[in-house]
C-alpha cells in the first residue's frame, strides 16, 4: 500500500460560516494502481487531491504515504515528501517564460543534479512522450495536448512513486484524450507508477482506473473496483452519472417478463444466456444491450424479455451466472 488516507476532515471558513469540504474520508491506494476520484463539481475531489501532498492542510485525519504519516510534518520534511509525488494540474501550470526543455528540467535543476544526467533523463522522457521536437518552444506556442504532456514530463522527471492528475482531460479534444489515456496506462504498466486521477470524464474511469472513489458532498459514497461502480451507475444509485434507461411503453406491454442483467468479466464472452434459455425452454427477446470495455474487463448491460412456462426457473439459473439481475416487470 503506497497511500492510506484515514478519516480526513477539511472545512473552509467563509462569510456564511464553516463549510465542510471533506467529511471523514478514508481510502487506500495500492502500489501500481490507478485510482479515480469522481464526483460532481464541488464534491471535494480537487480538495482531496490537494490534501494528498499537503498543498491543502487538513483539519484532522492521517495520510500515510509510503509508510510515513505526512500530516503534521515539518515544512522541510513536507518538501522531501513532495519530491516523491508528481502533480499534473488541470491548468498544466508550466512556467511561462521558460522553454519546454527548461520546464522539464526545472525540478532537477533546483535539486542540483548534474547537467549531463539531466540532459539524458529529459531526452528519454521527451522521446517517450513524443515531445522531442518541441523542446525549444515556449508554453504559449504549444497545443493543449502538448502542454499536458509537458506537465506530465515535468512530473516524470522526478522519478515519482505516485502521480496525481487533476482533471487531465478537461482541456483536451476526444482524440488527444484517447492518446493521453493510453499514455497514462502505458506509464503505469511500464514504470509501475501509481496514479490518482480526479475526473468527471467517464472515459478516464473506464479506460484507466482499477478502482474508483466516489465523493458526494465531501463524503466518500463508494470506494471499490471500477466495474462495481458501473453497477451502481446502471442501478441508478449514482445520480450524477448517466441517466436511467427508459423503456418504450409498447415494449413493456408486449413482453410478459422483463429482466435487466449486468455482466462483468470473462463471462461476458460466453453464450450464457442462450445456454440457460435452451435448458429451460424459454424464448428470449433482447430489448437493449451494450458492452463497455473497462480496464479490468468487459462490462455488459442487457435488457431481455422472457416467455415460457419455466421462466421462473430460467431467472433463478441466470441469476447465478451473471453479476446482477433485476426483474423490471
Amino acid at each position: 500500500m503506497i497511500l492510506s488516507v484515514e478519516k480526513l476532515n477539511l472545512s473552509f471558513e467563509d462569510k456564511s460560516g464553516k463549510r465542510k469540504i471533506l467529511d471523514d474520508v478514508s481510502l487506500s491506494v495500492e502500489e501500481g494502481e490507478i485510482v479515480g476520484i469522481v464526483g460532481l463539481s464541488g464534491a471535494g475531489k480537487t480538495s482531496l487531491l490537494r490534501t494528498l501532498n499537503l498543498l491543502q492542510p487538513v483539519d484532522s485525519g492521517s495520510i500515510l504515504f509510503d509508510g510515513l504519516d505526512i500530516v503534521g510534518l515539518k515544512e522541510s520534511e513536507v518538501r522531501n515528501v513532495r519530491k516523491k509525488i508528481g502533480v499534473v494540474f488541470q491548468s498544466f501550470n508550466l512556467y511561462r517564460y521558460r522553454t519546454l526543455y527548461q520546464n522539464i528540467t526545472f525540478p532537477l535543476k533546483i535539486q542540483g543534479i548534474a547537467k549531463k544526467e539531466i540532459e539524458e533523463r529529459v531526452m528519454n522522457i521527451a522521446t517517450e512522450l513524443g515531445l522531442e521536437h518541441r523542446l525549444r518552444a515556449y508554453p504559449s506556442q504549444l497545443s493543449g495536448g502538448e502542454q499536458q504532456r509537458a506537465a506530465i514530463a515535468r512530473a516524470l522527471v522526478m522519478d515519482p512513486k505516485m502521480i496525481l492528475l487533476d482533471e487531465p482531460t478537461s482541456a483536451l479534444d476526444p482524440k488527444t484524450t484517447g492518446r493521453l489515456l493510453d499514455l497514462v496506462v502505458s506509464l503505469n504498466e511500464k514504470h509501475g507508477i501509481t496514479f490518482v486521477v480526479v475526473t468527471h470524464d467517464m472515459d478516464v474511469i473506464k479506460r484507466t482506473c482499477d478502482r474508483v472513489a466516489y465523493l458526494q458532498n465531501g463524503k466518500l459514497d463508494f470506494f471499490g473496483p471500477t466495474h462495481e461502480f458501473f453497477v451502481k451507475i446502471e442501478n441508478n444509485e449514482v445520480s450524477d452519472f448517466g441517466k436511467p434507461l427508459e423503456l418504450e411503453k409498447g415494449l413493456l406491454s408486449a413482453n410478459k417478463k422483463i429482466l435487466r442483467v449486468l455482466f462483468w468479466g470473462t463471462r461476458t464472452h460466453e453464450p450464457v444466456l442462450w445456454k440457460i434459455a435452451k435448458e429451460n425452454d424459454v424464448m428470449i427477446n433482447i430489448l437493449y444491450g451494450k458492452i463497455e470495455e473497462l480496464k479490468n474487463g468487459p462490462f455488459g448491460t442487457l435488457i431481455i424479455g422472457v416467455e415460457g412456462d419455466k421462466q421462473d426457473l430460467f431467472v433463478e439459473e441466470l441469476r447465478k451466472s451473471v453479476f446482477f439481475l433485476e426483474e423490471v416487470c
Binding site: 490537494r50 501532498n53 498543498l55 522541510s76 518538501r79 522531501n80 515528501v81 513532495r82 519530491k83 509525488i85 502533480v87 494540474f89 488541470q90 491548468s91 498544466f92 501550470n93 512556467y95 511561462r96 526545472f106 525540478p107 533546483i110 506537465a151 522526478m158
Partner: peptide
C-alpha cells in the same frame, strides 16, 4: 503570478528562497 504556478512549484518541493 497565477496561483496554479505557485501550487505546482510548491508541489515540486521548492523552498522559499527558490
Amino acid at each position: 503570478v497565477p496561483s496554479g504556478i505557485i501550487d505546482s512549484s510548491n508541489s515540486m518541493g521548492l523552498n522559499r528562497w527558490q
